[in-house]
Simulated scan of single mutants.
Amino acid sequence: MKAAVVWKAGEPMTIENVTIEKPKSREVLVRTAYAGICHSDLHFADGTYPHPMPYIPGHEASGIVEAVGDEVTHVKPGDHVVGCLSVFCGHCSQCVTGHPSLCESPDPKLPAGVARRMSLNGEVIHQSSNLSAFAEQMLIHEHALVKIDKDLPLDRAALVGCGVLTGVGAVIHAAKVVPGSTVAVIGCGGVGLSVISGAVLAGAGRIIAIDRLDSKLELAKQLGATDVFNATDVDPVNDIIELTKGGVHYSFEALGLKQTADQAFRMLRMGGTATLLGMFKPGNKLEFEGSLFIKDRKIQGSSMGSNQFRVDIPNLLNFYRQGRLKLDHLISDRIELEQVNEGFKNLYGGAPVRQIIDFHTGV
């Protein structure tokens, strides 16, 4: 199969003909249809987050099941599926208490460097995020998949596997936004825009979008933002506190920067909650003004939207089918696998929302 391989952090990927194993017990072989290029992929490829080399990136994908191993019960050949990196075991304390995105078991979720599913000329090609979606095929545990209806477009479905799930899930599961409340979103990339969509689904009364690109702010308005702030030259906190007469009930940081994390906390009204979704560089320390905690202000993280993806992904795609969740606007560009390095370069400019790799499945 053709796949994009990272050989050294910070260097361009090469397209290689990689050998992939046949599915073993509980494993599923998927023909990849579409894969989104996420900023998280960039953080690993440039070495910000260490990963065993060489490896195949990609963790946001849809596809069609080609073959299954022994004991697979969730899918069969021909099924349409979405992959999710928050693989769950189903029996650890986190899973059985309703937190599968925090699964603690090593059984289905192989740590980086452990999987031996792909190779090139006898050398192991490591799997990333238990998926490695920048390849024509994926060999993954069935607990990294969810079956979806065949009438749903696979390009939109791919988006739900990471960015949309993270953003909407953070609103619904982590922050538990209540109807009529005020929400602020800092960073209007794929995750931030999905937070806006989630806030619309939750019935937020006011949704404030903050970014440095007018193009993204315009898109935020199309998705449901009621107010927008371009933060290119200003700190928006005071303006937002004035606009909302005291601050927002909920804020979401989707960039992974110390400055914007601080802003997310400072723009809260009394009793408000800030949720951090951005990937901060390892070792980064965050500081917050202690006196602001006195009036019940809270700050929290959320892993992949605190999802229950076997339930959440079909629900989100059903909302899309009903017209209640907008996904079409999120696709910035469609590229071929051979253009993946160009796609990564585009991320540095900040303009793309989500570029997707089209593997020409014909579906």
Rank of each mutant, 00 (worst) to 15 (best):
E336N: 13
V363Q: 07
R297W: 05
I313W: 02
V237I: 10
A170G: 14
K326D: 09
D262C: 10
G190T: 06
D227K: 00
A231I: 04
L213V: 04
N341A: 11
I356A: 03
K24T: 13
A135N: 06
L110E: 05
R321W: 08
V185E: 00
H143D: 11
N130V: 07
T273G: 05
S302T: 15
D358S: 15
Q355V: 12
A61K: 00
N230L: 04
V75Y: 02
H91G: 09
P111M: 10
L325V: 06
A170D: 02
I172A: 04
I294D: 09
H59I: 07
G58C: 07
H173S: 12
A4Y: 01
Q308I: 15
G362M: 09
Y348Q: 09
D328L: 08
P282K: 06
P352L: 06
V340F: 05
T361I: 11
H99S: 11
R266Q: 11
P108C: 13
G187C: 11
P153C: 11
T226F: 03
A115V: 09
F309K: 03
S101F: 06
F265L: 04
A9Y: 14
G272M: 03
F252E: 00
K2A: 07
E123D: 15
G224T: 08
A45D: 06
F359K: 01
L217W: 02
R117A: 06
P57T: 10
R310P: 10
S306F: 04
D214F: 13
T48L: 06
V18N: 00
V124E: 02
A199R: 00
I37E: 02
N341F: 11
K76D: 12
A175I: 04
A9C: 15
F229V: 05
K285A: 14
V178F: 07
K326N: 09
A133D: 05
